[in-house]
Computed example of a mutant assay.
Amino acid sequence: MRLLPSYREVFVKIQQAEYQEQKVTEFCKTILDAMKQAMRNGVGKGLIGPVMSAALYAADGGYQDVVCHPKWHDKPLGVLKPIVAPDEILEKEQFMLDLARRSVSEGRKLLIYTIYTDKLDLTGRYQRILREAGLDARVLKASVPTEIREQWVQDVLADGCEVLICNPNLVKTGLDLFEFTDILFMQTGYSTDTVLQASRRSWRIGQENPVRVYYASYEQTPQMVAMSLMAKKIMVSNQAKGNISQTGLSNAIEDDEDETGSMMAIANQFLDGIRDHAHDAITGAISRLSEDDCTHEFTASSMSTLQALMQSRHGTTCTATVEVVVENQTVPSGRTLLDDFTEDLLAGLFKPQPLSTRHNSPEKASAKKPAKRKPAPMPKPQSGFLDLFA
């Protein structure tokens, strides 16, 4: 018996087309050089934000003009002309489409996260690409009130939704998206909390099917630098919580050669040998969907099975202390010690507690409260004795 299915995190390194890589590299170099020169001249105020935003967006927004024009400048620092024709798709979009087709063909649903949902909106383009391929794709907007978002999702699912597109901030807390067992981050942003919460919207007790999470990024672009920084932030955040297991984004981190990194690696290697690996994510890195290996996935027990187990254990007695004895214990064929322990744990957690009847007991109601004891008087210090606490 398993409470949770397998959880896979895969880092996807998208290789740009040669023409795309050349144009994006030239654009990024132009605006970064302009920012450096402006800062040397003392007029670089407010340039870092617009420049970095344009550099990160360039590879994803290359289907249209990408203009880097800060407020305090008379003319743009750089302009990236469209890389592809309006009816063509970019390499990362092709991966998105391939993944969506595979998910639907396997009877699974895909949840796509993008941080570009406002001025640089990409949700409409992603939806159009998927719909033209015959897929039912819906977009969850921020205009949908928080209190009805869960019902909104259930309504579109009942209407035949196969792919859901939204900003991860909209669903990172408060929603259980069990139906979407495949998750694709087209971009991650900079918040570790948002990424960690949004990536586990469907991986929780009650989920029976394996959950797959993909993080896509273009190679040889500023996106890779941002993804590496995000991976390091998540690694440090997990280590602070005592979790040293690898994540899918760990593949975006280059090996550290400094002394601090070496010491941390030694500590992690020691702790890794003594910890429980049962719920570790299955991680890896790919550059195309054909390299994705799903052979080690496993499912979890259904909620009906868990409920039947709890009902069968209602008559048992559960104490506050759980003791597990494994020496000289025989396990029936097809079962493991973990199965027995899980059943006992579930019975203890979900066993209904008897209602208190203290208010119905006449003996207890008529019993008098014992008189309070007066505190004993403090002894007086003896003659010639210095009381330091007087």
Rank of each mutant, 00 (worst) to 15 (best):
G206N: 06
A198L: 01
G206C: 09
Q220Y: 13
I205V: 15
Y215Q: 07
N268Y: 01
Y215P: 00
N209D: 14
Q220S: 14
E257I: 12
A226M: 10
K232I: 07
S237F: 07
D255H: 10
R201C: 08
A231V: 12
G273N: 13
I253P: 02
L229D: 09
R275S: 07
I234F: 04
K233I: 12
R200A: 04
Y218M: 03
Y214G: 01
E208C: 15
A267K: 05
K241Q: 14
V213W: 12
T260M: 10
A267D: 03
A226Q: 15
T247I: 12
R275V: 03
S245E: 13
H277E: 04
S199T: 02
S202P: 04
E254P: 00
T247C: 08
V213A: 07
A265E: 14
L271S: 03
V236I: 14
S202V: 09
Q246E: 13
K233G: 02
N238K: 15
N268W: 02
I266H: 07
Q269G: 07
V236Y: 04
D255N: 05
S237W: 03
A231D: 03
A231S: 12
I266N: 07
R204S: 08
D255R: 14
S250A: 10
H277C: 00
Q239G: 05
N238Y: 06
V211I: 15
S262W: 09
M264W: 13
Q207R: 13
G242A: 09
